[in-house]
Amino acid sequence: MLDIKNLKVSFNDGRKGIAVSGIDLHMEAGDTLGLVGESGSGKTVTALTVAGLLQKDRATVEGEVMFEGKDLLKCTVDEMRLLQGKDIGVIFQEPMTSLDPLMRIGRQIEETVKVHCKFSAEERRRMALEVMRLVGLPEPDVTYKKYPHQLSGGQRQRAMIASAFITHPKLLILDEPTTALDVTIQAQILELLKKLNEKCGVSLLFISHDLRVVRRVCKKVAVMYHGEIVEQGDTDQVFNNPQHEYTKRLVEAVTTRRRANV
Protein backbone atom coordinates (compact mmCIF):
# COMPACT_ATOMS: atom_id res chain seq x y z
CA MET A 1 0.00 0.00 0.00
CA LEU A 2 2.75 2.43 0.97
CA ASP A 3 6.00 1.95 -0.85
CA ILE A 4 8.89 4.31 -0.27
CA LYS A 5 11.76 3.84 -2.65
CA ASN A 6 15.16 5.46 -2.34
CA LEU A 7 13.76 8.56 -0.64
CA LYS A 8 16.28 11.36 -0.27
CA VAL A 9 15.50 14.62 1.46
CA SER A 10 17.90 17.48 1.91
CA PHE A 11 17.26 20.96 3.19
CA ASN A 12 18.41 23.98 1.31
CA ASP A 13 17.55 26.69 3.80
CA GLY A 14 19.63 27.56 6.85
CA ARG A 15 20.20 24.00 8.06
CA LYS A 16 22.00 22.68 5.03
CA GLY A 17 22.42 18.99 5.03
CA ILE A 18 20.93 15.67 4.18
CA ALA A 19 18.05 14.66 6.41
CA VAL A 20 17.16 11.40 4.76
CA SER A 21 19.63 9.63 2.50
CA GLY A 22 17.97 7.00 0.40
CA ILE A 23 15.61 4.89 2.46
CA ASP A 24 13.22 2.14 1.41
CA LEU A 25 10.10 1.30 3.36
CA HIS A 26 7.24 -0.97 2.54
CA MET A 27 3.86 -1.27 4.20
CA GLU A 28 0.92 -3.55 3.43
CA ALA A 29 -2.65 -2.63 4.30
CA GLY A 30 -3.21 -3.27 7.99
CA ASP A 31 0.48 -3.15 8.83
CA THR A 32 1.84 -1.47 11.90
CA LEU A 33 5.30 -0.14 11.26
CA GLY A 34 7.37 1.58 13.90
CA LEU A 35 10.00 4.07 12.84
CA VAL A 36 12.56 4.36 15.60
CA GLY A 37 15.58 6.58 15.95
CA GLU A 38 17.16 9.35 17.91
CA SER A 39 16.42 13.04 17.41
CA GLY A 40 17.68 14.21 14.03
CA SER A 41 17.77 10.74 12.55
CA GLY A 42 15.25 11.74 9.90
CA LYS A 43 12.20 9.87 11.11
CA THR A 44 9.98 12.94 11.38
CA VAL A 45 11.16 14.25 8.03
CA THR A 46 10.19 10.94 6.47
CA ALA A 47 6.73 11.24 8.01
CA LEU A 48 6.34 14.83 6.90
CA THR A 49 7.25 13.85 3.36
CA VAL A 50 4.63 11.13 3.28
CA ALA A 51 2.07 13.51 4.77
CA GLY A 52 2.91 16.12 2.15
CA LEU A 53 3.82 18.70 4.74
CA LEU A 54 7.36 19.38 3.61
CA GLN A 55 7.62 22.84 2.10
CA LYS A 56 8.84 22.30 -1.38
CA ASP A 57 10.83 25.53 -1.56
CA ARG A 58 12.87 24.59 1.46
CA ALA A 59 13.71 20.98 0.80
CA THR A 60 14.78 18.87 -2.13
CA VAL A 61 13.07 15.53 -2.30
CA GLU A 62 14.10 12.65 -4.55
CA GLY A 63 12.89 9.10 -4.95
CA GLU A 64 9.31 7.98 -4.88
CA VAL A 65 6.59 7.59 -2.30
CA MET A 66 3.92 5.34 -3.81
CA PHE A 67 0.61 5.35 -1.97
CA GLU A 68 -1.93 3.02 -3.56
CA GLY A 69 -0.24 3.30 -6.91
CA LYS A 70 0.09 7.06 -6.82
CA ASP A 71 3.38 8.89 -6.41
CA LEU A 72 2.76 11.37 -3.62
CA LEU A 73 5.85 13.35 -4.53
CA LYS A 74 4.38 14.13 -7.93
CA CYS A 75 0.96 15.14 -6.63
CA THR A 76 -0.09 18.77 -6.86
CA VAL A 77 -1.12 20.64 -3.75
CA ASP A 78 -4.80 20.10 -4.53
CA GLU A 79 -4.41 16.39 -5.27
CA MET A 80 -2.54 16.09 -2.00
CA ARG A 81 -5.28 17.91 -0.12
CA LEU A 82 -7.82 15.37 -1.33
CA LEU A 83 -5.73 12.61 0.20
CA GLN A 84 -4.88 14.42 3.41
CA GLY A 85 -7.40 13.72 6.07
CA LYS A 86 -9.35 11.33 3.87
CA ASP A 87 -6.93 8.50 3.07
CA ILE A 88 -3.95 9.63 5.10
CA GLY A 89 -4.52 10.85 8.62
CA VAL A 90 -1.80 12.46 10.68
CA ILE A 91 -1.59 12.85 14.42
CA PHE A 92 1.04 14.95 16.06
CA GLN A 93 2.79 14.99 19.32
CA GLU A 94 1.09 18.08 20.72
CA PRO A 95 -2.52 17.40 21.57
CA MET A 96 -2.57 20.50 23.76
CA THR A 97 -2.11 22.94 20.92
CA SER A 98 -3.28 21.02 17.88
CA LEU A 99 -6.96 21.77 18.42
CA ASP A 100 -8.46 25.12 17.51
CA PRO A 101 -9.04 26.71 20.93
CA LEU A 102 -12.23 28.44 19.83
CA MET A 103 -13.99 25.59 18.07
CA ARG A 104 -16.17 23.06 19.80
CA ILE A 105 -14.79 19.52 19.89
CA GLY A 106 -17.68 18.07 17.90
CA ARG A 107 -17.32 20.55 15.08
CA GLN A 108 -13.60 19.92 14.96
CA ILE A 109 -14.00 16.21 14.71
CA GLU A 110 -16.59 16.64 11.99
CA GLU A 111 -14.49 19.04 10.03
CA THR A 112 -12.58 16.37 8.14
CA VAL A 113 -15.86 14.92 6.91
CA LYS A 114 -17.22 18.33 6.11
CA VAL A 115 -14.22 19.13 3.97
CA HIS A 116 -14.02 15.81 2.14
CA CYS A 117 -17.50 14.34 1.84
CA LYS A 118 -21.01 15.58 1.31
CA PHE A 119 -23.06 14.63 4.31
CA SER A 120 -25.86 16.50 5.99
CA ALA A 121 -25.20 18.18 9.33
CA GLU A 122 -27.30 15.53 11.05
CA GLU A 123 -25.31 12.67 9.52
CA ARG A 124 -22.03 14.36 10.35
CA ARG A 125 -23.11 14.71 13.94
CA ARG A 126 -24.06 11.06 14.09
CA MET A 127 -20.70 10.06 12.62
CA ALA A 128 -18.84 12.28 15.07
CA LEU A 129 -20.68 10.83 18.05
CA GLU A 130 -19.98 7.34 16.80
CA VAL A 131 -16.26 7.91 16.37
CA MET A 132 -16.11 9.68 19.73
CA ARG A 133 -17.59 6.59 21.31
CA LEU A 134 -15.09 4.45 19.42
CA VAL A 135 -12.07 6.36 20.72
CA GLY A 136 -13.49 6.35 24.22
CA LEU A 137 -14.33 9.97 24.83
CA PRO A 138 -16.62 10.13 27.84
CA GLU A 139 -20.25 11.20 27.33
CA PRO A 140 -20.03 12.01 23.62
CA ASP A 141 -23.19 14.14 23.74
CA VAL A 142 -21.69 16.41 26.35
CA THR A 143 -18.13 16.39 25.06
CA TYR A 144 -19.43 17.25 21.60
CA LYS A 145 -20.26 20.73 22.84
CA LYS A 146 -17.11 21.28 24.88
CA TYR A 147 -14.13 23.45 24.02
CA PRO A 148 -10.59 22.03 23.96
CA HIS A 149 -9.57 23.73 27.20
CA GLN A 150 -12.27 21.78 28.99
CA LEU A 151 -10.65 18.45 28.11
CA SER A 152 -7.63 16.78 29.65
CA GLY A 153 -4.52 15.98 27.64
CA GLY A 154 -5.49 12.37 27.10
CA GLN A 155 -8.99 13.36 26.04
CA ARG A 156 -7.60 15.87 23.60
CA GLN A 157 -5.39 13.23 22.07
CA ARG A 158 -8.45 11.01 21.78
CA ALA A 159 -10.27 13.88 20.11
CA MET A 160 -7.35 14.26 17.70
CA ILE A 161 -7.49 10.57 16.91
CA ALA A 162 -11.26 10.83 16.44
CA SER A 163 -10.91 13.69 13.99
CA ALA A 164 -8.24 11.79 12.06
CA PHE A 165 -10.22 8.59 12.13
CA ILE A 166 -13.73 9.77 11.31
CA THR A 167 -13.12 9.43 7.57
CA HIS A 168 -11.71 5.91 8.07
CA PRO A 169 -8.34 6.64 6.48
CA LYS A 170 -6.22 3.80 5.16
CA LEU A 171 -3.05 5.07 6.75
CA LEU A 172 -2.50 6.89 10.02
CA ILE A 173 0.81 8.61 10.54
CA LEU A 174 1.55 9.13 14.21
CA ASP A 175 4.45 11.35 15.12
CA GLU A 176 5.27 10.63 18.75
CA PRO A 177 1.59 10.61 19.64
CA THR A 178 2.11 9.76 23.27
CA THR A 179 5.21 11.72 24.17
CA ALA A 180 3.30 14.58 25.77
CA LEU A 181 1.13 12.28 27.86
CA ASP A 182 1.79 10.62 31.18
CA VAL A 183 2.39 6.91 31.33
CA THR A 184 -1.09 5.68 32.25
CA ILE A 185 -2.74 7.76 29.55
CA GLN A 186 0.02 6.65 27.17
CA ALA A 187 -0.94 3.03 27.72
CA GLN A 188 -4.62 3.78 27.11
CA ILE A 189 -3.91 5.63 23.88
CA LEU A 190 -1.65 2.81 22.68
CA GLU A 191 -4.39 0.28 23.42
CA LEU A 192 -6.82 2.44 21.48
CA LEU A 193 -4.49 2.60 18.48
CA LYS A 194 -4.03 -1.13 18.59
CA LYS A 195 -7.78 -1.62 18.71
CA LEU A 196 -8.31 0.66 15.73
CA ASN A 197 -5.70 -1.29 13.82
CA GLU A 198 -7.13 -4.68 14.67
CA LYS A 199 -10.82 -3.86 14.33
CA CYS A 200 -10.84 -1.36 11.51
CA GLY A 201 -7.73 -2.42 9.64
CA VAL A 202 -6.12 1.00 9.48
CA SER A 203 -2.37 0.89 8.87
CA LEU A 204 -0.21 2.73 11.35
CA LEU A 205 3.10 4.40 10.64
CA PHE A 206 4.28 4.99 14.14
CA ILE A 207 7.16 7.32 14.79
CA SER A 208 8.78 7.26 18.17
CA HIS A 209 12.05 7.29 20.01
CA ASP A 210 10.54 5.14 22.70
CA LEU A 211 11.26 1.48 22.03
CA ARG A 212 8.78 0.22 24.59
CA VAL A 213 5.96 2.15 22.96
CA VAL A 214 6.85 0.82 19.53
CA ARG A 215 7.16 -2.69 20.84
CA ARG A 216 3.69 -2.50 22.26
CA VAL A 217 1.92 -1.41 19.11
CA CYS A 218 3.98 -2.32 16.07
CA LYS A 219 4.49 -5.65 14.40
CA LYS A 220 7.30 -4.36 12.27
CA VAL A 221 9.99 -1.89 13.05
CA ALA A 222 12.59 0.12 11.14
CA VAL A 223 15.51 1.68 12.94
CA MET A 224 16.82 4.96 11.56
CA TYR A 225 20.23 6.38 12.22
CA HIS A 226 21.74 9.43 10.52
CA GLY A 227 19.14 9.47 7.77
CA GLU A 228 19.47 5.80 6.92
CA ILE A 229 17.54 2.76 7.85
CA VAL A 230 20.06 0.54 9.54
CA GLU A 231 17.81 -2.36 10.32
CA GLN A 232 14.22 -3.41 9.74
CA GLY A 233 12.08 -6.46 10.27
CA ASP A 234 9.63 -7.99 12.72
CA THR A 235 9.63 -6.18 16.02
CA ASP A 236 10.41 -9.21 18.13
CA GLN A 237 13.16 -10.34 15.88
CA VAL A 238 14.84 -6.95 15.72
CA PHE A 239 14.65 -6.35 19.43
CA ASN A 240 15.58 -9.85 20.55
CA ASN A 241 18.33 -10.32 18.07
CA PRO A 242 19.60 -6.91 16.91
CA GLN A 243 22.11 -7.09 14.10
CA HIS A 244 23.33 -3.55 13.71
CA GLU A 245 25.61 -1.98 16.27
CA TYR A 246 23.31 1.02 16.79
CA THR A 247 20.24 -1.14 17.35
CA LYS A 248 22.15 -3.23 19.85
CA ARG A 249 23.06 -0.14 21.84
CA LEU A 250 19.50 1.16 21.60
CA VAL A 251 18.00 -2.07 22.91
CA GLU A 252 20.64 -2.34 25.58
CA ALA A 253 19.90 1.16 26.82
CA VAL A 254 16.27 0.27 27.43
CA THR A 255 16.91 -3.09 29.00
CA THR A 256 19.49 -1.78 31.41
CA ARG A 257 17.15 0.95 32.46
CA ARG A 258 14.39 -1.56 32.99
CA ARG A 259 16.66 -3.71 35.09
CA ALA A 260 17.64 -0.71 37.11
CA ASN A 261 13.99 0.06 37.77
CA VAL A 262 13.17 -3.40 39.07
Binding site: L53, Q84, V90, T97, S98, P101, V115
Partner: peptide
Protein backbone atom coordinates in the same frame (compact mmCIF):
# COMPACT_ATOMS: atom_id res chain seq x y z
CA UNK B 1 2.45 28.69 12.39
CA UNK B 2 0.32 27.47 15.26
CA UNK B 3 -0.20 23.75 15.63
CA UNK B 4 -3.94 23.86 15.17
CA UNK B 5 -3.52 25.52 11.77
CA UNK B 6 -0.96 22.92 10.69
CA UNK B 7 -3.28 20.25 11.91
CA UNK B 8 -6.22 21.66 9.97
CA UNK B 9 -4.02 21.67 6.87
CA UNK B 10 -3.23 18.02 7.47
CA UNK B 11 -6.93 17.27 7.58
CA UNK B 12 -7.16 18.65 4.07
CA UNK B 13 -8.97 21.85 5.08
CA UNK B 14 -8.77 24.52 2.39
Amino acid sequence: NMDYVKNAKLMGVT
